[in-house]
């Protein structure tokens, strides 16, 4: 990892400044309407979230539950593509615009659209529009390390990996030593949007990981949908990730800045 990358990546910068109660919010690009990507992104920044995760819609999102699946389908029906997403993000970091996006951005999605786009072209575009990291749940760690890590590094794009309650300690250590940015702790064995509450088993897992003294910060995701679950996650990690609950909110309450602020305030209450 080059020194240059460490200083230039907004995700690393963020964690260097702030290590508690970070809120990362997921939304699907091109949802509810094709042109909403920038609106929601800016709305989240104004509402004061710490990181934003933009979903690249995919036809077969196997790790996602119904809410995110449906937002993916709707975005695709709207005509969303990866190419269009980069067009929508182009210039968002530009300070001359008067309202530059400064919040760290991660793209979350599945590997196939990225492979069709071309891995290097994808990284290059991420760099160009100011994307800081990616989460690609079906890109295996070993293949990433042997085939793609060098390209991601070359363009300064962090690749965030998931761990679950079933992930072996040796594998967590490997992920911790080989990646940076943060570790995405999946709260329990599940797809998105299906976890209800935080159980004792989950707490035990959070404690076990907390005690590992990993070099990377940790954010807990899956099942974080209200102030209680957010608080609990923050006791054991540097913050949490909210996805399905925000998608439902966008669907019901719309994409206005007030609507988004209200949602973020509720979670952080």
């Amino acid at each position: 990892m080059t020194q240059e990358l460490l200083t230039q990546n907004r995700i690393n910068d963020l964690f260097a400044q702030k290590s508690e109660r970070l809120l990362n919010v997921y939304f699907t690009a091109g949802f509810p309407n094709l042109g909403d990507t920038g609106t929601v992104l800016r709305g989240l920044q104004q509402a004061g979230v710490d990181l934003v995760e933009i979903g690249m819609p995919y036809s077969d999102p196997v790790a996602d539950g119904e809410t995110i699946q449906q937002s993916n389908m709707q975005a695709l029906d709207n005509g969303m593509t990866l190419k269009l997403l980069f067009e929508q993000l182009a210039g968002c970091r530009d300070e001359r615009s008067g309202d530059p996006v400064t919040v760290p951005i991660l793209l979350m999605g599945y590997i196939n659209p990225v492979l069709q786009f071309g891995v290097e072209a994808f990284c290059q575009k991420c760099r160009e529009v100011g994307v800081d990291g990616v989460i690609l749940p079906d890109l295996p760690l070993d293949l990433y390390l042997s085939e793609y890590a060098a390209t991601f590094r070359q363009y300064g794009i962090l690749n965030v990996f998931l761990i679950t309650p079933q992930t072996a300690e040796s594998r967590i250590r490997l992920i911790d030593s080989e990646t940076e940015g943060f570790i995405y702790m999946v709260s329990s064995a599940s797809i998105t949007g299906s976890v209800k509450g935080i159980s004792d088993t989950m707490r035990a897992y959070f404690e076990r990981i907390q005690a590992m003294n990993l070099k990377n910060p940790r954010l807990i995701g899956f099942g974080i949908n209200n102030p209680e679950t957010f608080e609990t996650a923050c006791q054991y990690a540097n913050g949490a990730i909210v996805g399905s609950a925000f998608i439902r909110h966008l669907q019901q309450e719309g994409t206005s800045a007030e609507s988004i602020r209200a949602f973020v305030q509720t979670i952080r209450a």
Binding site: D138, P140, D142, L162
Partner: peptide
């Protein structure tokens, strides 16, 4: 060993399925 036939195969799965 890694599960490939020529260029095809492998295990492109989310971490939840890895174990």
């Amino acid at each position: 060993d890694k599960g490939f036939y020529g260029n095809f195969g492998g295990a492109f799965i989310p971490e939840m399925l890895y174990p």
